[in-house]
Design a protein around this nucleic acid. Structure first.
Lengths: 202, 202
DNA sequence: AATGCGTGCAAGTGCTTGCTTGCATTCTAG
DNA sequence: CTAGAATGCAAGCAAGCACTTGCACGCATT
């Protein structure tokens, strides 16, 4: 890795950590520079703005996350397996970026540049998820006595809360893969047991 | 209501709304004054600090929420009814304060005065909830193949996400009581169906 | 009528923030 | 070895922040 791409790397990593910890507005360019081990001026020479750093981070997200579940065409077969795969990819990508994406979603309400970066992505994701839930309900793969948007919200809650809870509680360190896998499996198991199609009762 | 207590009221309400929308650090005293329809100086004459406003808000929380489920002695009888009551009180209190409590929990990580206000309250709440889950597991009132802290986290996720999701998506208006009741019931129903004790299989 | 008290208004202080400028230094490619 | 690019360093600037001060006004109680 060349020296120049290394500083870019360090800057973006530091910015990601700090955005996750303190949000966009709460992160100063001086703090980013310090954590990256770089002079503050270098930030502005490499990216033109603080917003420029955010933009570069967003592009990196888009590369690695490949759409954050948007436009995913789910295999209409095994609902449980589909949910497990979905939960796993969402949670592990959220853990990878240290919760920055979730934290930034909060900031979008008040920070215009964050709102512009995310656009209507989260909203479209939820709508797509609800649409998928409705589809599975029609196919008999999910219980039908709960509204699809409630099912979608609950699923979103389960997956996002894993990271969110640790952000709130201060347990920010990334857990080893096995513990994460176990918890995700238990969460999906819990969700699936509740969301599976009912018998004739209730 | 006397004129003086009215201004105090308006200030605290404005501060609560703004803290919920933008967080503590993101809320300026000017913005609070403007929304309260009050001169900025009045803020500092009534409460000594910006932190003083936060403290006063916290005391009001404590009065109305009466401990935010901490120290609650659950009736060991009907688990489902207990969960429904718990979810309802948590969600409706969160809706009442406009999500300020949840948003402030995020700020606690980085803003010392917020951390001091909340103390270890959230953490103790979660531990108490997990302990209750474990107790119900032992009594055969909850499935035992999922760790109690996962059960507790999932329940926390379900209840907090209702408000959290609307904060992120921008749908901040308080819903009418009936719609809230229905959604909460469906959420608890979903959770309970998944968390109820199993038969002999898995 | 007089005395406080709560409030508004205007101005200002010291600090932090994002961002810039000018210059010296190091690194690297040809 | 040398030219150009990347980086560091010191200093500073305008704006926004929490917070203060001094003064004037209105309103209720006495």
């Amino acid at each position: 890795m060349s020296a120049v791409s290394d500083t870019t790397e360090r800057i973006l990593r530091a910015a990601g950590e700090l955005f996750a910890e303190r949000g966009y507005a709460g992160t100063t360019t001086r703090a980013i520079a310090e954590r990256a081990g770089v002079n503050e001026v270098t930030l502005f020479r490499r990216f033109e703005n603080k917003a420029g750093i955010l933009r570069a981070m967003g592009e990196r997200f888009a590369e690695t996350a490949a759409g954050f579940s948007a436009g995913r065409q789910p295999d209409p077969g095994d609902t449980r397996a589909m949910l497990l795969g979905l939960a796993h990819s969402e949670i592990s990508s959220a853990v990878e970026n240290g919760g920055a994406a979730i934290r930034l979603a909060f900031d979008a309400r008040t920070v215009p540049e964050v709102a512009e970066l995310l656009g209507d992505g989260p909203k479209r994701n939820m709508e797509a998820l609800a649409a998928y839930m409705a589809m599975r309900q029609d196919a008999g793969g999910l219980r039908s006595d709960i509204e699809p948007h409630v099912l979608a919200e609950a699923f979103f809650a389960l997956t996002s809360s894993y990271v969110m809870y640790r952000m709130v509680m201060g347990n920010a360190e990334v857990p080893e893969d096995t513990a994460l896998d176990t918890t995700v499996e238990q969460l999906v198991d819990l969700y699936w047991s509740g969301a599976a199609p009912r018998g004739e009762d209730r």
